[in-house]
Simulated assay, not measured.
Amino acid sequence: MIVKRFGEVLRDLRKQRGLSQEKLAELANMHDRHISFIERGLRKPSIVIVFQLAKALDIEASELILMVEKRLRQSEEE
């Protein structure tokens, strides 16, 4: 559940910033397939990846985690 919600938040943030998976991958120094796998909940991002993605999205890693926690709480309430 956490991995899926993380992917949803990542996708939402990427789209809000008008970034393609390829561009986000470039900014985060990752392969675009890895971004795709994370967004679809098929890969568990390491703490290093979380920090790289947050930096690429111009937010703090803690803010990214808080967004995932909020999404988890919302899904539990539904």
Rank of each mutant, 00 (worst) to 15 (best):
E8F: 12
E8L: 13
V9H: 02
V9I: 11
V9A: 00
L10S: 02
L10N: 01
L10K: 00
L10V: 02
L10A: 02
R11D: 09
R11T: 04
R11F: 09
R11P: 02
D12W: 07
D12E: 10
D12H: 09
D12Y: 10
L13K: 05
R14Q: 06
R14L: 06
K15Q: 12
K15N: 11
Q16W: 09
Q16C: 13
R17V: 07
R17I: 10
G18V: 07
G18H: 09
G18R: 03
L19H: 08
L19W: 09
S20V: 12
S20D: 06
S20Q: 05
Q21W: 07
Q21M: 15
Q21S: 13
K23A: 07
L24C: 03
L24T: 01
L24S: 00
A25S: 08
A25R: 01
A25T: 00
A25I: 03
E26H: 10
E26D: 15
A28G: 04
A28R: 03
A28V: 05
N29P: 06
M30W: 06
M30V: 08
H31C: 07
H31T: 08
D32R: 15
D32H: 10
R33W: 11
R33I: 14
R33Y: 15
R33Q: 13
R33P: 04
H34R: 10
H34W: 11
I35N: 01
I35T: 00
I35P: 00
S36C: 14
S36T: 12
F37L: 14
I38D: 00
I38T: 00
E39S: 03
E39I: 01
E39F: 10
R40P: 07
R40S: 11
R40K: 12
R40D: 08
G41S: 08
L42H: 11
R43G: 06
R43W: 09
R43S: 11
R43C: 07
K44Y: 14
P45C: 08
S46A: 08
I47M: 08
I47C: 06
I47F: 10
V48D: 11
V48Y: 07
V48E: 12
I49M: 09
I49Q: 12
I49L: 09
I49S: 12
I49R: 06
I49K: 07
V50D: 00
V50G: 01
F51R: 15
F51T: 08
Q52L: 13
Q52Y: 10
Q52V: 05
L53Y: 02
L53F: 05
A54H: 10
A54Y: 09
A54T: 08
A54Q: 05
A54V: 12
K55S: 15
K55D: 13
K55T: 15
A56F: 05
L57S: 07
L57M: 09
L57K: 02
D58R: 04
D58W: 06
D58N: 12
D58L: 06
I59H: 07
I59W: 05
I59M: 13
I59T: 06
I59G: 02
